[in-house]
Design a protein around this nucleic acid. Sequence first.
DNA 1: TTACATTTAAATGTCTGACAATTTGAACGC
DNA 2: GCGTTCAAATTGTCAGACATTTAAATGTAA
Lengths: 244, 244
Amino acid sequence: MKIDPHNKADLSAQIAGAIRDAIVSGKLIVDERLPSEAELADHFSVSRPTVREALKRLAAQSLIRTQRGAFGGAFVNRLSYPEAYGQQITTATLLLSMNAISFDVACEARYALERACTPLAAERRTPDTLATMRAEIHRQAQPGLTDEAFCASDVAFHRALVDSAGNPVLSYQLAGAVEAMQPLMNMITFTARSRGAIVGFHTRIADALERHEAEAAQAALSELEAYTLTLGRDVMAARARPKA
Amino acid sequence: MKIDPHNKADLSAQIAGAIRDAIVSGKLIVDERLPSEAELADHFSVSRPTVREALKRLAAQSLIRTQRGAFGGAFVNRLSYPEAYGQQITTATLLLSMNAISFDVACEARYALERACTPLAAERRTPDTLATMRAEIHRQAQPGLTDEAFCASDVAFHRALVDSAGNPVLSYQLAGAVEAMQPLMNMITFTARSRGAIVGFHTRIADALERHEAEAAQAALSELEAYTLTLGRDVMAARARPKA
DNA sequence: TTACATTTAAATGTCTGACAATTTGAACGC
DNA sequence: GCGTTCAAATTGTCAGACATTTAAATGTAA
């Protein structure tokens, strides 16, 4: 593990990069203890605060965890699904909110990804994931639900749909896409009429999955996409002419 | 922006969280300058090194960027696609390598996601993305290519396929899934025979996209998935009985 | 007036040294 | 043998200082 003495970038960034490379390449393995901060400072010929800044960078990416006390130190962290989910969602949310992604593009991506796991979901859906979907549908039919709560339930329904595919890698990948859409969806005002329509689509999807009918589920999903798109466009149009 | 004085977690983590929340919630907007390190230290009643550790955490997630000199400081960073790609790929790669994801599960997820963008790719593929795919196919047919180079070209082909869909959100989501598979794919020894078969599938996919035939492309993709799966299983089986 | 060189101030980057807090293992006494 | 105490190692935090970089402000000459 070496750093370039002629590089004029931040030392802490260089050191973090060197350690990150060692982890990604497998030179440092899971749960292995890194040298102490003092030893790292000595090794890289920098001061301890600089080493600490580098370690904090790695900790922010969940690459290491630290423990205080004797025989404590920094350890290579096994990246868990929940940690990866969290980072995925933060990144995806910011990417969408900061880059003027159109509602149409985000919607298209989301439903394309969901349709991708529908065949697997139709094959493998469990009583458990079906029950989750039914419960969320029931919640969505309750009157007096705020728009935010309706949206949150919508996200929960779609996550259950994704989880039905029984593939953790897919679940991980789609968690970001589905959750990141929520702020955009929250801008929509769901009237009683549109809620009814959405609950109808959700019911059709759940029914199709229960009967192992992938194509019917995909069809309902596509119709839901088209409907969501019209709702979103209405909102955008209303925003474009605020004089009304 | 406040921190809990009774929380016994690291101060730098708390401060980073407070600033992150302010960014994600929109209280701090893109390109806005944060207070100087000295001001932040004063605001949170901590020392400057502690503030710096917090800022390095945020920098590691590309949430802020820093500039030296007068009128420099920390600025809220617009998360760009390349930055998001990079984080996505690092996270996905580690998730796969550290969690004993089976080749089958990873493969299934990858091809499911790719099939999801095939209909869009068939509709929108450009001469540019088609040319990229053809060039990679040509490279893959060269004799004397190392397994690693063949794999890299394979990834480039599939990225071109994904980019053909013309949806940056999809491209972003799938970058991680496709690239993260590379280390797993690198374990496969590609014989001349299997390379020929893969080039054949790739050619069928490119041809189908050129003719705007989504279903033919999906069919070729599914066959490629099945073929990849058998190659991977052979490798795993060979590893399971190393006495041979 | 304009163009260019110089100065200056503000900010981040880095270092040194110190102390606090936490955790573990080992020595000690019963 | 067992519980208690103590020492050592390590991270967490702080204070102050200096180095480096950058851009605005200032001064100077054509």
